[in-house]
Write a protein that binds this DNA or RNA. Structure first.
Length: 428
RNA sequence: GGAGAGAUGGCUGAGUGGUCGAAGGCGCUCGACUCGAAAUCGAGUGGACGUUCACGCGUCCCGUGGGUUCGAAUCCCACUCUCUCCGCCA
């Protein structure tokens, strides 16, 4: 949610910034509604002030024996006018709210306009491995090793699901353990939130109403506000943890991380080259989240990117960091870095972490504020999130980047204590 | 799922139609006293919106949404949540 005051005072500036990610922006109607709203408020508050004044006087006048019948019927008329104006006001405010809710965040100054084609690679780590043999696809590797069962996954869950079996499940769990251990070392607080959330959670995160059809709904409630859905990312839960609260400045930054599976419909987004684990309906992810003061959010974003990168580096996987152009950022985000790992079979880099600063956009939607001193006015916090990490791209990257000619796969050093072996071999 | 009780400011707790945005207490902030602290005393202490250069002023908010009334924390209706008991179940 953007600040209507900002739009009122700098419509051209906001418009210019939004055009980096939107095809057209027109505030004409919005500003008209805004003016109508404020005029109506002044008018109606004057009427209310009069009503309050007269109503306060009535008991005294009655005591003095003055006939107040005239006043009372006058106030009755006034009350009707007020009620009418309040109805008009409610309609205008609904229009303003709907308009503002649909606007995405303002891209940061250093974010380039346009879509994917304008994403910038900031840095790379490692390099593409030269295979002395024909490398295999992770689906074939995993199937041959017997660590992921795609066929039975589809049989029991439908298309887009798989089953980690035996050592595969151990590998998956090892990754999660590795992430969790690192975040704990850095002083982040471990959270295990509900996986089923209310509509309001999706709204605060900035995912609803636009993407309400991309999630799995639990209750087919007629009223949208009463629906519940299975979370598409732990971010949706963590942004809502402090919804409606006023935090103390000394509590900030709040640093959380959560493990949850993520559930996404991904309707219409399946592509042949993304077979396997690259885009499923359910994947495991550890998500980092921070609530900060406005002045500290830029630094926090760098910290989150660095943490995510460190995890990928720790696994020894070739990857790069990209700064997303405006249209490629999620609507709630003002700035996003993606960490992308190399997938040899695709000869492409796929996102394993997305680190974003929402600035006060989500905080406004969720009314999450903080106070600097006991007496100062509450201000909106800034919120940031970053995957740390999603396993569903890391798992294939490990299989493919660490595969050997005989189809075995070397286990990254940091995972060995949990997997209990150095190498994954077929005969196991 | 059934029955009952409740929801008031940071907390506690009064208030059942007319200066109640809300007594009292606790907490917190500032000040006085003190070498300092404690105790004591004094003052202050919610949010949103609008208006104003500013001081300020106005409107709204006592779980949420409606209604009655000149006037609602207080009366009526619906809903939500919490607690207790019973049933069912992991």
């Amino acid at each position: 949610m953007l600040d209507i005051n900002k739009i009122r005072h700098n419509p051209e500036e906001i418009k210019r910034a939004l055009l980096k990610r939107m095809d057209s922006v027109d505030f004409t109607e919005l500003l008209e509604w805004d003016a109508q709203r404020r005029n109506l408020i002044v008018l109606n508050e004057e009427k209310k002030a009069k009503r309050n004044k007269v109503s306060d006087d009535i008991p005294g006048l009655k005591k003095q024996g003055v006939d107040v019948q005239g006043l009372i019927s006058e106030m009755k008329q006034l009350s009707n006018e007020i009620k009418e104006n309040d109805n008009i006001l409610r309609d205008i405010e609904a229009k303003i709210h709907n308009f503002l809710s649909a606007l995405p965040n303002i891209p940061a100054d250093d974010v380039l306009p346009g879509g994917k084609e304008n994403n910038q690679v900031i840095r790379e780590w490692g390099s593409k491995r030269e295979f002395g043999f024909t490398p295999k696809h992770h689906v074939d590797l995993a199937t041959d090793l017997g660590i992921v069962d795609y066929e039975r996954g589809a049989k029991i869950g439908g298309y887009g699901f798989w089953v980690y079996t035996g050592i595969g499940a151990l590998m998956e769990w090892a990754l999660l353990n590795y992430f969790i251990t690192e975040h704990l070392k850095d002083g982040y607080t471990f959270m295990l939130p509900p996986h089923i959330l209310t509509y309001q959670c999706g709204y605060t995160a900035g995912q609803f109403p636009k993407f309400v059809d991309d999630v799995f709904k639990v209750e087919a409630s007629e009223e949208r506000e009463n629906m519940q859905f299975i979370l598409p990312t732990a971010e949706t839960a963590l942004i809502n943890f402090h919804r409606g609260e006023i935090l103390k400045e000394e509590e900030l930054p709040k640093k959380y991380f959560a493990y949850t599976p993520c559930y996404r419909k991904e309707a219409g987004s399946h592509r042949a080259e993304e077979r396997g684990m690259i885009r499923g309906h359910q994947f495991n992810k550890v998500e980092m989240f921070q609530y900060t003061t406005p002045e500290n959010s830029e630094i926090a974003l760098e910290e989150l990117v660095e943490k995510a990168e460190k995890l990928v580096r720790g696994l020894g996987l070739h990857h790069r960091v990209t700064k997303l152009a405006a249209k490629d950022c999620s609507a709630s985000m003002g700035k996003t870095y993606d960490i992308e790992v190399w997938i040899p079979s695709m000869n492409d880099y796929k996102e394993v972490s997305s680190a974003s600063n929402a600035y006060d956009y989500q905080a406004r939607r969720g009314n999450i504020r903080f106070r600097r001193t006991n007496t100062s006015k509450p201000e909106f916090v800034h919120t940031l999130n970053a995957s740390g990490l999603a396993t569903s791209r890391i798992f294939p990257a490990i299989l493919e980047q660490y595969q050997q000619e005989d189809g075995s796969v070397i286990v990254p050093e940091v995972l060995r204590k949990w997997v209990g072996r150095d190498i994954l071999k077929r005969e196991e």
